[in-house]
């Protein structure tokens, strides 16, 4: 994991909010004493490496009309999980899908985040996922209140 001071400077900027102006990278280029083209080439590389996993606008889903957002946790055996994971990932309403290490007392090891416009739509999506994956045992864990939602500050400091 080698990132030089330029990469670190770029990651520090893009982990937050880049300036909303015609040339968003002109300030950082000036302060690092390299060209905007150099910055963009490095951004391309970081995208290629996957260090920057997504690029562009991050929306607030409630305001995009997706007001019913649920975490659904499923019980999937090790034989079921890969096939089920691929099926779930194919649903455009599913934004995240993971297998997690969970304590036995909880037991639901496959997690999906589902975004819907209302309860009825949510129920329909869950039913389709259940039918297509064959996973019958699940729990819908709705969010009642958001206490915090922030983007991670990976790179800190004044540099």
């Amino acid at each position: 994991m080698n990132y030089d001071e330029y990469d670190r400077g770029i990651l520090k900027l893009v982990q937050g909010d880049i300036p909303l102006e015609s040339r968003p990278f002109s300030n950082i280029a000036q302060s690092m004493n390299i060209s905007e083209e150099d910055i963009l080439e490095r951004v391309q590389n970081l995208l290629k490496k996957g260090t920057i996993r997504r690029w562009g606008a991050v929306l607030r889903h409630q305001q995009a009309g997706f007001t019913t957002n649920a975490m659904v946790a499923w019980k999937a055996s090790s034989e079921q999980s890969d096939a089920a994971g691929c099926i779930m990932a194919g649903f455009k309403e599913v934004s995240h899908c993971y297998i997690r290490e969970v304590p036995d007392e909880f037991g639901y090891n496959m997690f999906s985040m589902i975004h819907a416009r209302n309860d009825l739509e949510l129920k329909g999506i869950i039913a389709r996922i259940s039918e297509q994956t064959g996973l019958m045992d699940f729990v819908v864990i709705k969010s009642l209140r958001e206490f915090k939602k922030a983007s991670m500050e990976y790179i800190k400091g004044e540099d």
Binding site: L11, D17, P24, A57, V58, L59
Partner: peptide, 8 residues
């Protein structure tokens, strides 16, 4: 729009 940038 929450922010414009990258998700790392």
């Amino acid at each position: 729009i929450r922010r414009i940038g990258g998700i790392l």
